[in-house]
Structure formats: C-alpha cells, structure tokens
Design a protein around this nucleic acid. Sequence first.
RNA 1: CGGAGUGUAGCUCAGCCUGGUAGAGCACCGUCUUCGGGAGGCGGGGGCCGGAGGUUCAAAUCCUCUCACUCCGACCA
Length: 437
Amino acid sequence: MRLSAYFLPTLKETPSEAQIVSHRLMLRAGMIRQSSAGIYSWLPMGLKVLRNIEQIVREEQNAINCHEVLMPTIQPADLWRQSGRYDDYGPEMLRIRDRHDRDMLYGPTNEEQITEIFANSVRSYKDVPQLLYHIQWKFRDEVRPRFGVMRGREFLMKDAYSFDLDKESARRSYNKMFVSYLKTYERLGLKAIPMAADTGPIGGDMSHEFLILAETGESEIACHRDFIDMSWSDYEVDFDGDLQPVVDKFTNQYAATDEKRDPEAEKALGEDLITARGIEVGHIFYFGDKYSSKLGAVVTGPEGEEITVEMGSYGIGVSRLVGAIIEASHDDNGIIWPESIAPYRVGLINLRHGDEACTQTCDDMYASLNEAGIDVLYDDRDKKAGAKFADMDLIGLPWQIVIGPRGVKDGIVEFKNRKTGEREEISPVKALNRLKG
RNA sequence: CGGAGUGUAGCUCAGCCUGGUAGAGCACCGUCUUCGGGAGGCGGGGGCCGGAGGUUCAAAUCCUCUCACUCCGACCA
C-alpha cells in the first residue's frame, strides 16, 4: 500500500483524553477515533490489526472443531426473562424498545441466545458434544469506561460455548479450550498465564482467567517464576487425546490475581515468587446446567431418558487484545507489533521524494515486495525524512527498509528491525531475501 | 453511582483571578529556501470561547442551570 493513497491520520501530539500508553498510541497511530465514552471507530490501520487478531482466534477455534456462528447484537428481553437474567442484570445492560414497544436489549453476552439455538435444534445424545463460537460486538454500559479499547462499553468478543452430556465430558471440552487458548495467545505473540478464577455458584476448579503481563496492567498478580520462561509450544498436543496432563502442567504452579492471592503459598515460594501487573485477555468457565435447565436444552439419552446438557463458556476479548498487546509491546517511539498481527510486515521509506534515482529504487523495491507477497506499506509521501521516520516507528511495523540518495549511490538500503533497533546496510536484493526467508 | 477536574482553531494550550477589538505553537493552503530522525522565511484560511439562562452600557472572563469528556473509588472481558 502506498501511504500517499492511504488513510493514516497520525498525530504528533497526544490528545488530552488519553491517559494510558496503548490508548495514546492507538490515537496517535491513526488506528481509532473516539465516538463517545467507551465507544470507538476503527480506522484502516486499527481495523487491519483487529482483523488479524480475529483471524488467528478464528483459526484456532476451528482447529478444535469449534464451529463459527453469528448471533445478533440485539436480543429480545423475553429470552432473558426465561433465564432470569433480565432482572438480575443491572444498569450495565443497555435496554431498548422497538417501535412496537417490545423490550429489547443490546447483548452484553450470548448464553441465552446460544442455548435457545441448541435447545431448538438438538434432540439426541448422538449430536453431543458440540462446540460453537461467534465473534461479535457486545455492549456493557460500564459506569466508568477507561483505558481506550481495553475497557470500552462496546467491544468485540469471541465467545465459545460447549454442550456436553455429563460433567466428565464437559471437563474434556473445557480442557480442549484451555489448551487451545495457550496456542492462540502464543500465536498472537503473547505470554498468557492461566490463573484460577472465581467459579461462582457452581464451584469446582473449572474457571480460569488468562492474563498477560504489562507494567500498566489493571490488576496485581503473583505467580511462580517458572511461568515467565515457560514456552507453551513445547507440547505436542493431540486434541482428541487426554489433555489433563497439559492442563495440570499449567495449573499446578501457583498463580493468582489480587483477590485470590494466598500469603501462605507465596511465603512458601520464597525466591521463586514474582509479582507483576496483568491484563485479563480471556476467561473460561464451566457453569453446568444454569441455562440449559431454564431454556430447555435437553437431549434424549441412549436409554430414552432426558438429559439436561452441561455447558461452559469461553471468552476472548478481541478488541481489548489490540490495546493489551500494545501495553505489552511498545517503546518511547511507538508501537512494536508482533509479526503475526502487524498491519503490514514491512515499511518502506523513500527519504527523498523528489529524487529520481532514489524514487526509482523505492518503486522497484515496492514492486518486488508485492510480487513476493510481502505485505508492505510504502511511504512515498512528500514529507521530511524526520516525519517519515517518526511515523514509521509510531505505527510499529516489524521491519523497515529505508532508502535514501546516499545509499542508492552505493547500491545499498538500510534494513531495520523495529523491535531491536538494529540496522544493516545491505543490497536491495539481500533485504528482499531477508523478508522472504 | 460517590468524589475531583476539564471544555477557547484540526491538535496541544495561554487568556478567566481583576469584564472592554479572541491569541500562541504545531497542523492545513500558497510560495521560496531546505531535504538522512517531527526544518526556516514570507503570505493566507480557519472560532456563535460546549449549550441555555441571568447580572452588566459591555461577558471567553462574574452567577445559575445543563451537557460532554477525563481522573480517583466501587464494578468489570
């Protein structure tokens, strides 16, 4: 993409409404604009990142035979009256009325909706277990939205739901999703630590939050040192096999968020204890027949008996992840995108807009990159070098190829790694091959 | 929802206390000089000073109400 033909409204100064680094950088990098408190528009660059994250999440869900559906944002109040949550849910739920005076709501979550679909469509135990998910915008009328997209009122969520015949089977579904999450976060370039979470009225050990570490994280956490060096990808995973050993591996060590911290356990860890701040980027839990019993999600068993299905729900905050990743990966100059979700893989800078030889070299490089299928953003604007450097660092593409008249004379370009800052002066062909390799 | 702030040019902000012609830097347009880490000169456009009411000869400035946004707390993916 040529920057001269793109829409990338970057800001030199920080809008005063943004306090935390990810919010500031998202506004400055031209990724989002605020519409009202906690509600944002996504501009091309921000949308591209959002889509990239969404796609990785989607692929990992599909990989465990979790099937994508799409449920509405607007739901009928009657559905929620059946589960009893229409009254239980507070003012966080945005209630609206249609022209016929029917009570509707903008969904803060979709358990009722998916349970109704299942209840109306599945009759036999042979069609269970089942995993379904969707990626949809939700709305929670938070009293105090903040931190940009990390704590907005409108946000994009991946929500999966499992349906099983009994608790043992539900545990298998839970474990599947647990391990799938580890893989998903790793692909996103994140180290996410699973932590035991409140299980609510159901109890038991089947509820975990996934947190990534970031200095500006919203909650204080403590965990065993081992988590820092643990690589999730060291495990050959057979999703149809027994996943319990893998889950155990990641849940045996101590890890807790503020409200669940245990001074005794922490004392015992001694030197191995580390404390940090974390951002919650996922939450999975098992909730039994809470919704299935109320909404009639019942199947006929092998003996002709009626079985109320056991359910679980598994969320990943997709839009929140955009902010969370920036919190975990940035420097004074701007964002540093992990390669897997970067809006473009490489930024190409033409330092001298008017110079014929320089521009020719840039155009050739741009054509070669495109031919090689490498996603490139080409800064061909008539701007000062300094402005281009600053913008390129700000938007955080993993690689930069900088071409100026000085290098062109000697047949070299500058190849820069955004994360490490390392620069090499190499030939255009070599630069191309680095990215191909 | 309690507490605290802020609303003046696209952005960052000064002016308000002590009422009297609405400002600066950046950005934008034109032009010249520049050209390897957010350049400089000259010229130019852009504002019902968040909104409503009040006090006054006169209100960005004082008073009342209201709306929006931000921060702290409680709550939360």
